[in-house]
Nucleic acid binder design. Structure first.
Lengths: 396, 396
DNA sequence: CGCCTTTGTCCTGTGAGTGGAAAAAGTGGA
DNA sequence: TCCACTTTTTCCACTCACAGGACAAAGGCG
């Protein structure tokens, strides 16, 4: 039993833990500069944290011109597990308490196989990470699932692409299996938290994080906090109508954004184009691999294939149109584009930017960066670790 | 000089003031039930508030089975001024500290005449209210303007329908003229605050308040607080594209919601229909009044005129389509429809509801009321009073 | 009229937190 | 090597907010 079960005893301790998480090892004096507490009080709270074992001494800091100060840091043996369940693959990573990734695994998977089968796989991956010496036990785990979640209970509700998960007590079940606290959230929200913690959104209070993968979703951050909506389905922009009377969508409507542009739609359109002989490049890839994915389209586009570029541009336009509406409504300080299709890169980004800058009013777009996510596939697991650390580093 | 210039000295006093504002006269004991403070502490803070004059004794309360308690209430002589500047008219009202409207004036006006002319009119109306004995002086004023506002400074920024107001220091100027603290906000946000304080949104934390007047805007409330966006232009949904390649809009784009449905668009469409002889009802009204407004369309619809009903339904569909997108994105707990066109009533509401319930996913719409505002033209001024009271009832 | 309940006041104890003094541990120049 | 000056850390006395109990005041009810 090396596991830490302690929690901060008050708001001061919680703030200190978060400072150490986000700023790394720090001297008492430096902590004092960042927090509004007297030196005496600060010393008392740090001592209490040292007693709990959450924080440990870390040698002497370099001198700032006088007596050298004693550094403290979060216990380097603390381990968080970050799990990002996608529609077709799963990422599992181990981090330390400073949320640095120590190990990262990725495997193909199908959510539709249901929670039991998926968690079996996740637990096996976690065990593998443990076996490689990265962790003895986990002190907490964050889980991202590709659908709406009733956040306080950690239970998916009415997830369209993962029937069989509806109402499954993910948080409770995994907490049991892993023997540690667990928090569950939508994968898009975790991506937003990841980019906020370690990516492009570090300094922005209000931003949107659009994830284009098998489906399309959007993380909403208001005042530095993820906004989840009344029933946990906020940010579900895949089924906003992008094309009046457009393609039929799995949800029963027509013209949904997701039906026109997403990993799945792109693969379908590319296959169609290849079969119709519109693109030699895509056709040859189809023949080689037996099927096409967004990755093939990205490669074809990189090779200069006109059809692939057109598909990307067309999709970017659709997406940009929807985002333009969201920008008018929400007036964010930043828009982050991420997810599986970021491989499409700047062609996609340019198309989105064009639409947004053209359709939204200058006041909203004047100083609005629209950028690709910085963390790629690590955003989700980092966000997951961040989620559980936020929870554990709050007063009990 | 009867004016109160005191402010609460700490967070407890601020909470007490807000309890008294929202709950009316109250005994010390009842206040104790609603706030987490010991009786002794509560007594001290109430005494301090009595000293400042913000709160006064108000006789004895009815017995609850034992000794009768001494009531306290907000000083009944406190007066707030609520000003709601629309595109074509202005509302000015006086309230007491409990935000009950004591007097309300409404006059036609044209914002395009610029801030100086408009404020002359507003000040005259305020003077009239004073002269009728409703107030000696004002203790604070809230101002709503139909465009984006840099909130902390109270300065309109790049307002499309009110050129000439850009950068005008509304807050400072009016504070000078009125001799009291002033807060400025977008008119839609004030409507949302009004409905939150005294209308349909009293118990909802996250909701949208769509105002359809000369233009279209949307107030966004997140966790009970108005969300204004990075540059203060959040909720500016009038220029979201509702119809691809639709009607040209003043903003330079095509197909904006506002170009297809709003007070102005409705008047234009009705006039067109009347001139083309599509509706005898509208034609006769056009002849009588020389011009048509949304009110005429409402009357014609009430009389069963098919063309008028079609116009409303068509507009409701467009609006509903946009709102459906916002509902998917924001997942609110309530949608309030208000503004000048609420006269169109249930025909409009039904059209909007149909679109939203059809286009958004069940999880978001399952328990989503879409209702008309309860307060009508009083929402704006009530919200304005609420804005300034929130400011004054916060620790200085 | 006596007993019970509720309300309001007084008073003391406690714990959080501040700020100054002094000790501890360095740096760097003469 | 010594001394003056910094920075860090600990220690201690003092303040202040607040809780909670005792008690008085005021009213209901049988």
């Amino acid at each position: 039993m090396r596991r830490m079960t302690a929690r901060p005893g008050n708001a001061h301790q919680a703030r200190l833990l978060k400072l150490l998480r986000d700023g790394g090892p720090n001297s008492r004096a430096q902590l004092g500069d960042q927090i509004d507490l007297s030196r005496s009080k600060l010393a008392v709270e740090v001592d209490r944290l040292l007693e709990t074992g959450l924080v440990v001494a870390d040698g002497l800091a370099a001198s700032r011109g006088g007596r050298r100060s004693h550094n403290v840091r979060l216990n380097p043996e603390l381990r968080f597990l970050g799990v990002d369940i996608g529609a077709t693959s799963v990422d599992v990573a181990v981090t330390n308490a400073e949320l640095e990734t120590l190990g990262h695994l990725n495997q193909p998977m199908d959510v539709r196989e249901g929670p039991v089968a998926v968690f079996e796989q996740v637990l096996a991956m976690a065990a593998k990470l443990k076996a490689s010496g990265l962790a003895e036990e986990f002190d907490g785990a964050g889980i991202g699932v590709p659908g709406p979640v009733r956040f306080p209970e950690g239970i998916p509700v009415a997830p369209p692409i993962m029937p069989g998960w509806d109402g499954f007590p993910v948080r409770e079940a995994l907490s049991q299996e892993l023997g540690c606290p667990v928090m569950v959230d939508n994968d898009v929200n975790l991506m937003a938290m990841g980019e906020q913690h370690a990516g492009v959104a570090r300094t922005v209070a209000d931003f949107l994080c659009v994830k284009i993968g098998t489906g399309i979703g959007c993380g909403i951050v208001v005042g530095g906090e993820v906004y989840r909506g009344t029933t946990g389905s906020a940010g579900d922009i895949g089924h906003i109508q992008a094309v009046p009377d457009g393609r039929p969508c799995a949800c029963g409507n027509r013209g949904c954004l997701e039906a026109h542009f997403s990993g799945a739609a792109l693969a379908r359109d590319a296959t169609e184009a290849a079969q119709q002989g519109l693109s030699a490049e895509l056709a040859s890839r189809l023949e080689t691999n037996g099927a096409l994915t967004a990755v093939d389209v990205a490669a074809a586009a990189a090779a200069g294939d006109a059809t692939a570029l057109d598909l990307i541009r067309e999709g970017g336009n659709r997406t940009g149109q929807v985002i333009a509406g969201l920008v008018s409504f929400f007036n964010p300080g930043l828009v982050v584009i991420g997810g599986g299709v970021t491989g499409l890169g700047h062609t996609l980004l340019a198309a989105i930017r064009t639409q947004v800058y053209r359709q939204s009013l200058p006041l909203a777009t004047g100083n609005l960066p629209i950028v690709l996510g910085e963390l790629g596939p690590a955003a989700g697991v980092t966000g997951a670790a961040r989620l559980i650390s936020d929870h554990l580093f709050s007063p009990a």
